[in-house]
Simulated assay, not measured.
Amino acid sequence: MSSGPNWPPATGGDLDELAARLSSLAPSCGPVRLVGIDGHAGSGKSTLAGRLSALSGGAPVLHLDDVASHDELFDWLPRLTAQVLDPLSEGRESRYEVYDWTSRTASGTHPLPPAPLVLVEGVGAGRRALRPHLAAVLWLELPRRTAWERGQHRDGPELADFWQVWMAAEEAHFRADPTRPHAHWLVRQSPDRRVGFRVFPGPAGHPREKVAPDVP
């Protein structure tokens, strides 16, 4: 395992290069390169996933907010395995239940094709049980309190009570199952909005790339 992409540590690389590198990784879940985008709530994971999807030709994005629920903030792994990981590992389209946070019930199902690159974003996307299925783990490098403040501002006062429950649950999750030490890349939002994000080598080094076929 190499030390990481050859980017200057002071400035980092950009998302275009990261998107290209993700597409060069070895498949990790059947034919799929499954990439986890993790970080604290409010850190910008959905925005990053959208940017990477656009740069990767429309790679599908699975939002873990659609999989989690009030009763299963982090206990959604059995459903994710049965509804997403198992089908994708066999090269089949998956169809997972989508949770409605307003009605507190499942609102239907959503298809997820076995595309060459699939992005999974949400708190816990790089958890221990998922990492064997992931081609790479990205971590949004934003302090916990800063991310939570942004998230609470985004969601407004009507979700203040839920945030109290969430913050305790998230803190317990990362204390028992930290993602950052296993991240292949750290992503930081740049103060320059024209840049958006900067990408740096993560603690886990560079992930495994696909092996080029022999040339006769």
Rank of each mutant, 00 (worst) to 15 (best):
A10E: 15
A168R: 15
W185V: 09
D161N: 11
A183P: 05
F197H: 14
S3G: 14
S24L: 14
P207N: 04
R104V: 01
D86P: 05
F197R: 02
A54C: 10
L140F: 06
S46Q: 06
W166F: 05
H153K: 13
G30D: 02
V199D: 02
D177Y: 09
A160M: 08
A125K: 07
P9Q: 00
A115W: 13
D192V: 01
R95K: 12
E17W: 09
A54H: 08
Y96Q: 02
G58Q: 05
P201M: 03
P213K: 06
P213C: 13
A20T: 12
G12W: 10
A147T: 11
L80S: 01
H110Y: 10
A10C: 10
S46V: 09
G156K: 08
V215H: 11
S89F: 00
H63P: 05
S69Q: 00
P78E: 05
P203M: 04
Q152V: 12
P31M: 06
T47S: 14
G151C: 04
R208G: 09
A147H: 12
A212T: 13
G57W: 03
V120E: 07
Y96S: 03
L112A: 10
R92N: 12
L159F: 14
L142E: 15
P178M: 04
E209P: 10
P132E: 07
Q83G: 07
W139C: 08
P213M: 12
E121V: 10
D16P: 07
